[in-house]
Amino acid sequence: MISLHDVTVTYPNGVIALHPTSASFQRGKFIVLLGTSGAGKSTLLRSINGLVRPTSGDIAVEGRGSIFADRAQLRAHRRSTGMVFQQHHLIGRLTALDNVLTGRLAAHSTLRTLLPLPRADRLLALEALDRVGLADRALDRADQLSGGQQQRVGIARAMAQKPEIMLADEPVASLDPATSIKVLEDLHRICREDGITAIVSLHQVDLARQFADHIIGLSQGRIVFEGTPDRLASVTLDQIYAVERQSLAKAA
């Protein structure tokens, strides 16, 4: 279980992205962070692996303590935390397999990774690609794959870490609706099969309803809803999206 204790994030330009927020994420669940863009989903998600450093508050993993205790602790936490990004974050001119192997770097010493990785790691990476249906494209350059395939390579890269936690920051925001569902199905299936805790930010209510075990609704840097998808009534949806509507109306 991961828990956030009064985490706040204020960016250097003074924007408060996250007001004091406490939450805990149950092991093995598929948790969706729901909200409009700018609601603080991305900030919350990125603080969970320290890509964003909280201004105050702390984040702890059960049995291991604060992830920010020291550099080694943060690296160990990141090693067991996979991340899938909105724009897949692949290196276009490398093969899909080489991109997936980036997920194996932290398992080795810096010196060891100057040489090609062991066969066991390459097999693991290939297996991860196979699980997202891309084993036959392993040696193709990443920039020759379609958007949905690139995002699957991103998932395979995170899977190659053998993670306990999977973070996904708007993983399907750049994909068409049909591909979105397929990619989320892959992510959902793999996390379920391996008992991985998944924390996924989305802005589409229907997708959240379809995949989430648990939904956390965010609006303007605060949690405004927490519960199972069936409790996500239209009243709560208004809470998640209403404030935005008001400010949009003002801007118009």
Binding site: R78, L105, T110, R157, L167
Partner: peptide, 17 residues
């Protein structure tokens, strides 16, 4: 492109990696 760098960092890579 800073994005793949962020991905490697998120996976626990050291600065040299």
């Amino acid at each position: 492109d800073p994005k793949p760098l962020e991905a490697a960092r998120a996976a626990g890579a050291t600065p040299i990696q």
